[in-house]
Amino acid sequence: MQPLVMKLNGQDVTLQIDPSTMLVDVLRDELHLTGTKVGCNEGECGACTVLVDGLAVDSCLFPALKADHREVTTIEGLAFDDELHPLQQAFIEVGAVQCGFCTPGMIMAAKALLDENPSPDEDEIKLAISGTLCRCTGYTKIVAAVRAAALKGGK
């Protein structure tokens, strides 16, 4: 067991973990933050995407200890007091959500993009979410939602 200290969704968190644990398992099994999904556990689907110091990572392949003393943001940390993040708002309004299993990962990947590049073009949006699979939506409305959020200055 080793200590892990991180700033998770703006709050300081300290816990003891088995050093072989991946970040996604800490989030889900230890902290029950289940908004982060597991679609493959092998870095193939992007459902587990979270932000570590602002960068989108596959949390299923990210050793939890690598997050030590860093800032981690998950889908649960996006809405501010009940006010939805512009990306969340846009996903709802545009109709970019179907089953919703890919949605948290998609939104986190898009957030990493918009934080870095507030007005991306279509190709940049596609590249940013190209590691995140969706079997339901055909991606069209997801791309449209990211663009709509960008237009509204969503970060």
């Binding site: 908004g35 889908i75 939805l84 948290p104």
Partner: peptide, 10 residues
């Protein structure tokens, strides 16, 4: 969609 607020917030 009525289920989308819960789906976008995890």
């Amino acid at each position: 969609r009525v289920d989308s607020p819960d789906k976008v917030t995890g």
